[in-house]
Amino acid sequence: MRMRPTLSWIPTGEAPPGTTDLEPVFSALSTGGVLVLSGAGISTESGIPDYRGEGGSLRRHTPMTYQDFTASVQARRRYWARSHLGWRTFGRARPNDGHRAVAAFGRHGLLSGVITQNVDGLHQAVGSDGVVELHGSLARVVCLSCGTCLPRRELAGRLEEANPGFEPVAAAVNPDGDADLTDEQVGDFHVVDCGVCGGVLKPDVVFFGESVPPARVERCRALVREATSLLVLGSSLTVMSGLRFVRQAADAGQPVLIVNRDPTRGDRHALTRVALPLGPALTAVADRLGIPLDEAAP
């Protein structure tokens, strides 16, 4: 059984100020048993924007809700047109040094697990094993009627066939893979149905207004219980889906460490918040641990 990191921490309920001191992160990883919880901020260096950071997409973009998607044919047309275009950008995204560092820490036995709020698959692309995709994955599509699951690339091919010449220029692409298009650009985009039962197809992701499956939540809670500390990477922790694990760890007396340039909703539960870009910060920690990142390259 691993010992808890010997970090000086007495929970006060007060948010620590942002710092550039990586010593607590190094200390936790040196001990091992660290559970990583990653958010959109770890993928910004791969060209995928976040929601709430500087220039975040929520300043100009309202994500699709589950209620709108299931209730409206026009909402589904708009979503799939925008997501079909956005998927091309996600397909070109490659892991960055932050993802490579997490994979390297895992290979060296320093992590007890990885939970990601991201739907981009970049942790897995660089070799991290056993990643729990809290909000699902854009790489899969599920039928809401019969439950059939298919690869996104298969659906992309069907959408290409159904919409030849669909090549609008998006103003931006958002963290959920939804490209910014006007109604005129969406036009009469043709949505395809489930090839098995004719039902409605939905990306296998948790939309706003939708709940994370209970079994997945419990799996994450178990990972928190088994960890020696929780390392949050690039998440504002604004939504409860991630914040609840920070609260769980803090309530159990497990050190919570956050690396995020902006303040987060979980800061008052944390030992420290390192306000540095993730790629350089985690590379510096890996260097100090003597762990090369090139061994984790895809």
Rank of each mutant, 00 (worst) to 15 (best):
M3H: 03
R4G: 13
S8K: 15
T12A: 01
T12D: 08
E14V: 14
A15N: 01
V25Q: 06
F26N: 10
A28V: 06
T31I: 08
V36Q: 06
A40G: 06
P49G: 01
G53Y: 03
E54L: 12
Y66W: 15
S72K: 09
V73A: 14
R77M: 01
A93G: 09
H99R: 10
A104S: 09
R107T: 11
G109R: 05
S112T: 00
G113T: 08
V114C: 05
I115Y: 03
S137K: 07
V141A: 00
V142K: 12
C143F: 07
S145Q: 04
R152I: 01
A156N: 06
G165R: 06
F166I: 11
A170R: 01
A171Y: 07
A172C: 10
V173H: 05
V173W: 11
N174A: 15
G177P: 04
A179F: 03
D183W: 10
V192F: 12
G195W: 02
G199R: 04
V206I: 13
F208C: 13
A215R: 11
R216H: 10
R216T: 15
C220R: 07
C220F: 09
V224P: 09
T228Q: 07
L233G: 03
Q248N: 09
D251S: 07
G253S: 00
Q254D: 02
V256K: 00
D262N: 00
R265Q: 14
L278Q: 10
L282A: 01
L282E: 00
L282D: 00
D287M: 09
R288E: 15
I291E: 07
P292T: 01
A296F: 13
P298R: 08
